[in-house]
Amino acid sequence: MNDWQPKITTFLCHWCSYGAADLAGVSRFQYPPNFRIIRVPCSGRISPKFILAALRHGADAVWVSG
């Protein structure tokens, strides 16, 4: 593989996954700095439009977690 790095847009639910991401930090788990997190109140807030918008704006992948 070349050194291409994906850009990942991440939508995390405030109540679960965002907290999990916090906990990953507290536990000092190390992971690649390739994603940018957008906090949402619930994964139910995610419209397919957001996913397409992220892809339109150059994200290589979108991750919705909640």
């Binding site: 991401a21 916090d22 906990l23 990953a24 930090g25 507290v26 000092r28 788990f29 190390q30 992971y31 690649p32 700095p33 940018r36 997190i37 906090r39």
Partner: peptide, 23 residues
């Protein structure tokens, strides 16, 4: 969140962590 989701989890890549914080 530039601590739990940035500095704490990218401690070996300070430059990229700074980039992420700016983003």
């Amino acid at each position: 969140n530039i601590r739990n989701q940035d500095s704490w989890v990218h401690k070996d890549e300070p430059e990229k962590a700074t980039e992420k914080a700016k983003d």
